[in-house]
Nucleic acid binder design. Structure first.
Lengths: 197, 197
DNA sequence: CTTTTAAATAGACTCAGCCCAATAAAGCGA
DNA sequence: TCGCTTTATTGGGCTGAGTCTATTTAAAAG
């Protein structure tokens, strides 16, 4: 899931994902998400339309380049749990660990420019795609020490808390600091409730 | 949000939403969701392609006809809260009340035929559209007695629990009974955790 | 019979996403 | 230096969802 290592053979890349990202955000500011075509984005970035889809599988993927890396970190932390620690703490540490690496400038663009995006189907789908992946990770980890149904509701509720935390983090403005404290606030009552069962 | 009252004037409807729904489910069984076109659905239902979009705004909307009505009930229950009852109980009662009206045969088709659907973008988007609506309702109700950030994380976590409950309900097979007990199990640890704050 | 209202339809259009075949730019081995 | 292999870019074409506008049809109301 992490970025594939750049191969030493073959034709080198012309641009980068972040180049397309910048072009996309510019255009979204000008015309909104729905009012911007993939054609326009790739033209401004100086590549062809097809090249866009070499970097992203969907137009809405430009929003979540950084987020995917964070989910990778949660995955790694959940797969190498410290022995002897109860699952609920492992989970807490895995999520907070990833969140403590996200500083004020790491906020996903989409969360600070929501009005330009609206409730577009494509964007919603892209969000829930990431949420599903995170939820699977948590559910698998929780299944080790909880019955299936409980593990699932725990994982879904956790994902809900993560989303809520990211939104209040984004809304806090440029002085928002790390994501971690927001996540701590959203997560602790929930984990406390589940800790008893 | 409830069904618009059928007007007494004008041309009567030829078919109904559930007619298109049945045609769609048949075809999904035969060819899967992605392998079925709106054209095929409307042809089998005996109407034109455009008529499909008179009944549904998207192909994936056929999955959630019943669900929308349930969310309507939650909305009604949250808007007319019994005085003197703390919000967390109002919320509990609103959700459980709607869930107790859902019997074994009310399971959304999509949840019992997940393998035929896959992680199609459109379906995910349609799910999260409903989830967003429910979350807004809960958040608004919770804002009355909790600070904004907490209200939001509560609402998102609740939605997560609802989804988890519906999935385990669907998986329970034909003898699944009402949704309510599943929801009770998923919701209670969560609400217990939030009740302290 | 005429007007009004709402539903069904026809036809055309945009654009996301996918596929395939062709080409360009690099490293590697001979 | 000359192929060979690998990878990225590109062009062209295609399907299908969703939108829009205008037209027609079927009913009720006056």
């Amino acid at each position: 899931m992490t970025d594939a290592p750049r191969p030493t053979r073959g034709r080198p890349r012309l641009g980068s994902a972040s180049l397309l990202e910048e072009a996309a955000f510019e255009l979204f500011l000008e015309n909104g998400f729905a009012g911007t075509t993939v054609e326009q984005i790739s033209t401004r970035a100086g590549v062809s339309r097809n090249t866009f889809f070499n970097y992203f599988t969907a137009k809405s993927d430009v929003f979540w380049v950084g987020l995917d890396a964070s989910i990778d970190r949660v995955e790694a932390a959940l797969e190498a749990p410290p022995e002897g620690s109860p699952t609920i703490d492992t989970l807490h540490d895995a999520l907070l660990g990833a969140a403590s690496l996200l500083g004020p400038s790491d906020v996903p663009w989409a969360l600070t420019h929501f009005e330009l995006i609206g409730s577009t189907h494509e964007v919603m789908a892209s969000v829930i795609g990431r949420a599903t992946r995170l939820s699977h990770l948590i559910e698998r980890a929780a299944s080790a020490s909880a019955e299936p149904a409980l593990a699932r509701s725990l994982s879904f509720a956790c994902v809900g808390a993560v989303v809520a935390a990211m939104m209040s983090w984004a809304e806090a403005g440029p002085e928002r600091g790390l994501l971690a404290p927001h996540l701590e606030r959203a997560l602790s009552p929930l984990l406390a409730g589940f800790a008893d069962v």
